[in-house]
Design a protein around this nucleic acid. Sequence first.
DNA 1: GATGAATGAGGATTCATTCAT
DNA 2: AATGAATGAATCCTCATTCAT
Lengths: 216, 216, 216, 216
Amino acid sequence: MCREQDFMEYNDKQLKIIDTAEKLFSNNGFEGTSVRDIAKESDINVAMVSYYFGSKEKLLEAIFAYRISITRLTMENILQSKEHTPIQKVDILIDRYVEKMMNNQCFYRLMLQEQTVREINKVSDIVLEAKMKNYEMVKKIIAEGQRSGEFRKNVDVQFMMATMVGTANHFMIYEDFYRRLNHLEDLSDEEIKNHIRKKLTHHLKTLFKAYLTHEA
Amino acid sequence: MCREQDFMEYNDKQLKIIDTAEKLFSNNGFEGTSVRDIAKESDINVAMVSYYFGSKEKLLEAIFAYRISITRLTMENILQSKEHTPIQKVDILIDRYVEKMMNNQCFYRLMLQEQTVREINKVSDIVLEAKMKNYEMVKKIIAEGQRSGEFRKNVDVQFMMATMVGTANHFMIYEDFYRRLNHLEDLSDEEIKNHIRKKLTHHLKTLFKAYLTHEA
Amino acid sequence: MCREQDFMEYNDKQLKIIDTAEKLFSNNGFEGTSVRDIAKESDINVAMVSYYFGSKEKLLEAIFAYRISITRLTMENILQSKEHTPIQKVDILIDRYVEKMMNNQCFYRLMLQEQTVREINKVSDIVLEAKMKNYEMVKKIIAEGQRSGEFRKNVDVQFMMATMVGTANHFMIYEDFYRRLNHLEDLSDEEIKNHIRKKLTHHLKTLFKAYLTHEA
Amino acid sequence: MCREQDFMEYNDKQLKIIDTAEKLFSNNGFEGTSVRDIAKESDINVAMVSYYFGSKEKLLEAIFAYRISITRLTMENILQSKEHTPIQKVDILIDRYVEKMMNNQCFYRLMLQEQTVREINKVSDIVLEAKMKNYEMVKKIIAEGQRSGEFRKNVDVQFMMATMVGTANHFMIYEDFYRRLNHLEDLSDEEIKNHIRKKLTHHLKTLFKAYLTHEA
DNA sequence: GATGAATGAGGATTCATTCAT
DNA sequence: AATGAATGAATCCTCATTCAT
């Protein structure tokens, strides 16, 4: 029913369903969200989910395929520039990743959820494929820096990426905790988002610069 | 509320239920696990869950209260020693945390799940309280290192912890991905666990040493 | 709340459920009747009760709203006639009430049940509102009779109605007892109904005529 | 287990259970009351109900057997006096019956409930037997009055009793409605009980005097 | 005699999906 | 193409009762 290459063909109702489902899945979990909830919130008929996407499960897959295809496009053409040094590229990577996450918290939370639950399914495949591509890209940047002597030799790229993604995820999850801890309850949603984005990118950049440029 | 001495009062059946539920919740999610599943896997009557814990929800709370109380005991008395330097303490902290997580993957995955879903409940409270205590503890270690001049001045403890916990979580979640990526499919569960534990602790120690001791 | 025009909108299945539920609730009590019982007897799916009425409780409310709205229509326009004397109106009231009850024994028994159980809920409200309207109507008839001198002065309308309703209810409940006591086991359902209706109306008319027209 | 002649042998715990169950059954219905509710309210173990009375059903029977045996004793020896005229005896009967009911509302409500539900069981038998005895007694009083010429000839004793019991029951059930209708919300429980008792007995006496002494 | 633990059966309700239109 | 009606399966939980002690 839902062929991967059809993303742009989604009509308004379908996009509405995808958005709503993403939000609800993200907030209440996949199993914690009923098709009826999605239908009510999207103001569409209950039968439409099955009708458009085949099933609740396939709707989830559609969400992942859709969001990741968008993300991929954004990511790829960024780091091929010849104008930046490797360390600049790392900084840009961090900026882009954090920004992407802050602007799509619902989806990133949903992705984390799905990976946390141990179940092999189509969604995992989609996610792993995307992760693999990102990994290859970063590996190239690091290798480039090592060739130029900017970065030290024994850098563990897999762990480095785990640190970037893991730290960012952690912040996303514990945003509220962070707010309370630092008495930032009064900041607006926009303000807190900016605040965290700034601090988080700064932290990651500092961390990675130290890690990449200083011998242990 | 959380009477620590009560945990030992759980009888064998209750402990069996807790263990099974932890595993199933972890693997399939809270909503994705039915009380019947737990009963079948624990080889007990369906009614026992309600009988012993009141409800499925309260069983979840019991799991958290139980595991966290145990963890807390282990954690606390570790870092009060006067024999270690601050950097050694950081290393010990990393060792302990990673070991704890590797030995209780189910629970740590479950915890991550519950925090990923956006819902305020008793479980969040339990987790946040524990996080807060850990944070205070690490803050003291860092301050100590700063006083002695070992650590640089502007260390962001909150972000540092986010990095430790986030990176470790990320590895736990993507263990399978890591295996495949590095062609380690043939390692036994025990071997892969050891392998990851070693690499992960090494990475975090290197990362933090660079971060804590080199000026940006 | 109680949109009278909606009653006619109940479809055949819904009416079937209402009828069946009324009978079963009446015979076995509300709590003594399971939704499954209703479904089986109505030959519909168990889920239909929740689907159509929201819940078992709301089905009960629907029964009351439905039956009482019908009764009200019948009752009201009866006693506004100018052709009858007050005593004739009392007789008509008795005839109508007893007939109504005999033809809707299930509902009247159910109503008695719900009032007997001490619980404040929507059903009580519906019933009390109806009782109040009936009371006001009777009060007018009595006042009319008192003005014309037909009825004595100190008539206690509340108690008079209690007598009518209470006596009729009592007969409905103890119909079987009455049968056995008077050796009427051989009468058909129709015959016994007619028999009781005749005797009961006669008794109430005699009683009230004596009460209303003779000074104490 | 529970032999009828054993009433006096009920120990304190058993009596406590009977009282509590009577109250709860009366307020929430038989099916609406769980054995656990009774156990909790009586502060006894859940198993005690089955242990002492055999089953929940048999506990109900015990309540009826117990209460009715007590009532019977009170009733019987009252109306055999030679000092009172028939009409006085009717007055005394009304006084006694209403008083009994007002002082045992829970049980009388429970009895009404059980009779309202259409089910043939041991409880009905107990109730019907008691009703029969009362009926025979009243029949004698009326016959006596007819012999002496005080009462008119065609008195329907069965209906007369239905009126007494039905009216009284009706009042018991609608006590709250009566309160609101007459703005008596401020009266204490004791006061309202007295108020109703007085009014109710007065009404019944007036009604029956008119009915028994005036030709139709 | 008395009880805490335990259980199978059954409770109402919600679920994702299908079907006729 | 789109939808309201309908459903069987599964949900969690509570029930009255029994059993070993």
